[in-house]
Design a protein around this nucleic acid. Sequence first.
RNA 1: UGACCCGUGGUGUAAUUGGCAACACGUCUGGUUUUGGUCCAGAAGAGUCCAGGUUCGAGCCCUGGCGGGUCAACCA
Length: 565
Amino acid sequence: MSESSPEKEVVVKKNFIHQIVEEEINAGKNNGLIHTRFPPEPNGYLHIGHAKSICLNFGTAQKYKGITNLRFDDTNPSKEDTEYVDSIMEDVRWLGFDWGDRLFYASDYFGKLFEFAVKLIREGKAYVDDQDAETISSQKGTPTRPGLESPCRSRSVEENLDFFMRMKNGEFNEGQCVLRAKIDMASPNMHMRDPIIYRIMKTPHHRTGDQWCIYPMYDFAHGQCDYWEGITHSICTLEFEVHRPLYDWFVDQLKDTDYRPRQIEFARLNLTYTVMSKRKLLELVKDNHVKGWDDPRMPTISGLRRRGYTPASIRNFSDRIGVTKVDGIIDVALLEHSIREDLNKNAQRVMGVLNPLKVVITNYPEGQVEHLEAVNNPENPEAGTRQVPFTREIYIERDDFMENPPKKFFRLSPGTEVRLRYAYFVTCNEVVKNENGEVVELHCTYDPQSRGGNSPDGRKVKATLHWVSVSENVKAEVRLYDRLFTDEEPDGHKDVDFKTFMNPDSLTVLENCYVEPFVKDAKALDSFQFERLGYFNLDPDSTQDGLVFNRTAQLRDTWAKMKGK
RNA sequence: UGACCCGUGGUGUAAUUGGCAACACGUCUGGUUUUGGUCCAGAAGAGUCCAGGUUCGAGCCCUGGCGGGUCAACCA
């Protein structure tokens, strides 16, 4: 799928991280080099929250003529998989960012990390603890109470070395012992209380297979990898703030130059009504509540992509929301505005009828097919025009007709005249109902003088309707996706029950929908906009999902109000 | 009752480093319009968590409160 939006030069708003970077450049730090990294763990698909981080890391480097690495933080084989690695690379590329030849994995460094651990043991700064997990945990103390030193803390260097080698050689079972850094069990910072740096896991790793049965912990890998890769700014989310002293501690043990990577934290993205927890999203996928990570109802990048979001719209969104340390929550309306803005400007329009109501134009010749010119994009004349077939029988949107219209209903009702877009003025004369009293057909007359949509006598109509020819159309199965949202707790970072966000209307399959035949010949285009109804996306590579349709918030509200009346 | 971080309209972000708070989204009016969209014009909405202090002057500096978040995984 290609990018539909022309690349406008994104002017990235200056944020506090840019401020820091500029000050360092001015001070001559790192010779003015800026080197960032995006370090996802391949344990799930990327979501809109990651997009913020991607834009920040790649964007900051771009802004200051630096470079960015992609590094998979794959230190926990029990959760990781190559499927995730592949999807992450695809999503980062789709967003428009390029890591060049700088693709790394934390697992690339398992050897160096092991040697570093040995060095720490030799220096008396690490020891093997063979107490069970519960004991170790209980000795950690609490945030308000200091911890207790492990009896293993005084083990000799030789013994530690021997233990660690045997750990590596698989002589112990999982959980039997761990390697810990010897720092300070009384530190007010829990992360400095002799943190575990290596644990035994007899799980094959997606890249290193069964080469290792001990794996470094995040804290023991991240800063070192940054250091080895020459990262200057290690940008991560707020919850790692308390890890920073430990990050620095390990780098200090390692470094032999003045250079050191600097960890800077920012607030992760929270969106109203949106579930962003990877754990929850995984559960949705595993329990088949959705069809996959790229289900258009999901807040994943791949889900948004299939929903019709463009890379530029997500980048603009990221820029708009800014970067701070304030742990807030952004209104999804801002995200929706970003895509509406983009599609309005760039998407090809096409007429489609989702819920058809047949209209017979009684004074139009039977069998006649007339082609009328329609503009492809009112925002951009260069997008050209297309020919839309008009016939005696057409479909209009059922919602565009009301037999007993309320006061402010401007569309079609008995006796009123409206315009069929690009076609003619029509007046409703007769409402045909079935035995249940349901409206099945309308009989209208058209004004031949109004061809193209204007009457020579200058009379006005209050509404313009979209329509599709009954005989000259493409029948489609349309799936209406609404994003999953939390009803009760409009708070992105609270865990919620599935029931509160598995809104039953989030996926509606409409089987009798009709779109202009133009769509069939427009495979090269991947993004259209339904006239008036909202936006949808046609992805030629995933026809089984039909048309992905995205109602705008405003239209949804309008509909809700109309229904309420 | 520890450590660290954060408090500016409904939401998010700004404020030339001390000079009577700006922008975007949202909301509400009015206008234009071949779709109740778009576009245009305008309005409402915070006196910057609170209390002191320094200063001619504080959202920015100082002190003390209050409120929120994070941290006690052999997760990242």
